[in-house]
């Protein structure tokens, strides 16, 4: 049983994610998981205390959490400084949410369970990826803002700090659910195919791109591309 699709260089490949995008993505993978594992030490103190022991007790976990959180913030800054254009393109692509995406989302549960489903042509990000692109960064944004509010409450009105705690928790839960699904769908799900290599190596097979992201492929590499 193969876990990931085979990486093949003998088949023509096209770029899907540039270096800045990929560094930010994997930087966030590491820092988010560190924050999650260390944060759960406080959130689920009774059932997750074993992780606290690994991370150096409650206080050790606290420092892992804060250092990783600063790292996560720096990756955001890095992304904004070096590739703000790609962020704008990303947002533009999310705003193209339309009929095809709704059809994609409504058929997706079948695809998720492993049935062969015929999907309408998709833009750079399909309907599911668009949802992930909205929800996960929103959660990360809320986590960062509420996190610094709780870290330095002396500069924030107490009524806002009180809201920051549940916001931080809720964004953690929703964000973690999205991350679990995203990690699985982006790697081990048979239907995800080349997606993993798109984020790991930066390129995907041309035939896969045309099949799974027809609109994006045509606009960038196909007939409609302005070369």
């Amino acid at each position: 049983m193969r876990l990931l699709s085979e990486y093949r260089e003998d088949i023509p490949r096209v770029e899907r994610f540039n270096k800045v995008f990929r560094i930010t993505h994997w930087g966030h993978t590491v820092t988010f998981l560190l924050c999650l594992f260390s944060g759960l030490v406080l959130y689920a103190n009774s059932s997750w205390s074993w992780m606290g022991i690994i991370l150096g007790g409650n206080n050790g976990a606290g420092w892992v959490h804060r250092i990783a959180a600063v790292g996560l913030t720096l990756f955001l800054v890095f992304f904004f400084i070096f590739d703000y254009r790609d962020i704008i393109n990303w947002i533009k692509d999310i705003l193209r949410f339309g009929k095809n995406d709704i059809i994609f989302l409504s058929k997706f549960p079948l695809e998720f369970m492993g049935f062969d489903v015929k999907m309408p042509p998709q833009t750079r990000f399909n309907g599911g990826e668009k949802m992930n692109s909205i929800v996960t960064p929103t959660c990360v944004f809320l986590l960062v803002v509420s996190g610094y509010m709780m870290w330095f409450p002396e500069y924030i009105p107490v009524s806002l700090v009180r809201i920051a705690y549940p916001v931080h928790d809720l964004a953690m839960v929703i964000g973690s659910c999205m991350v679990c699904m995203h990690a699985y769908l982006g790697s081990l799900h048979p239907g995800s195919g080349e997606s993993f290599w798109g984020m790991w190596k930066g390129t995907v097979r041309e035939d896969w791109a045309e099949h799974h992201h027809k609109i994006w492929y045509d606009e960038n590499y196909g007939d409609k591309a302005d070369k």
Binding site: F112, F115, D169, L170, V173, I174, C177
Partner: peptide, 26 residues
């Protein structure tokens, strides 16, 4: 909310595991 909300995370993992098995069987 706090005592129950985090159960959504193992639920998401369980969903992935179910899909992992069912999609491979199919």
């Amino acid at each position: 909310v706090q005592p129950y909300a985090a159960w959504l995370i193992p639920l998401a993992l369980l969903g992935s595991a179910t899909s992992f098995l069912s999609s491979r069987l199919l």
